[in-house]
Simulated scan of single mutants.
Amino acid sequence: MASEQVKHWENHSTAGEFILLGYQEYPILLFIAFLTTYLAILLGNGLIVVVTAWDSALHTPMYFFLRNLSGLEMCYTSVTLPKMMANLVSGDRAISLPACATQMFFILFLGGTECFLLAAMAYDRYLAICLPLRYMTIMSPRLCLGMVLVSFAISLPMQLLQIGLIFSLPFCGSNEIDHFFCDIPPVLRLACADLYANELAVYTENIFFVVLPFVLIVASYVHIARAILRMPSGTGRQKTFSTCSSHLTVVSLFYGSGMLVYLCPQTSDFAKVAKLLSLLYTIIIPLCNPLIYTLRNREVKVAFSRLLGKKRSLEVGTGIS
Rank of each mutant, 00 (worst) to 15 (best):
A2E: 09
K7C: 05
H8L: 06
N11M: 12
S13T: 14
S13Y: 12
G22E: 06
Q24P: 00
Y26S: 13
P27H: 01
P27G: 04
L29Q: 07
A33S: 14
L35C: 06
L43R: 11
G46W: 03
L47P: 02
V49F: 00
A53R: 15
A53C: 10
S56F: 00
L58V: 02
F65K: 09
Y76D: 13
V79Y: 01
T80F: 03
T80W: 05
L81M: 11
L81Y: 02
M85S: 05
I95P: 05
S96K: 06
Q103A: 02
M104T: 13
F105K: 01
F106S: 01
G112S: 15
E114K: 13
C115Y: 00
F116Y: 09
L117W: 01
L117C: 06
A120Q: 03
M121C: 12
D124W: 08
R125D: 05
L127C: 10
A128F: 14
L131K: 14
R134C: 08
M136V: 01
C144Y: 04
G146A: 14
L149R: 14
S151T: 02
A153G: 13
A153D: 08
I154F: 11
I163T: 07
G164E: 09
G164P: 05
C172S: 15
D178Y: 08
F180H: 07
D183P: 00
V187A: 00
Y196I: 15
Y196E: 14
A197F: 02
E199Q: 12
N206K: 14
V211M: 12
P213G: 09
V215G: 03
A219Q: 12
A225H: 13
I228T: 07
R230S: 13
R230P: 00
M231A: 06
P232C: 12
S233E: 09
R237G: 10
S242L: 15
T243D: 03
S245A: 15
S245N: 07
S246C: 07
H247C: 10
V250T: 13
S252L: 13
Y255Q: 12
L260R: 08
L263T: 15
C264T: 15
A271L: 06
K272R: 14
A274F: 07
Y281W: 12
T282F: 01
C288P: 01
C288V: 07
N289S: 10
P290D: 14
I292S: 09
Y293F: 15
Y293P: 00
T294K: 11
E299Y: 07
R306L: 07
L308Y: 04
G309M: 11
S313Y: 07
E315Q: 13
V316D: 08
S321H: 13
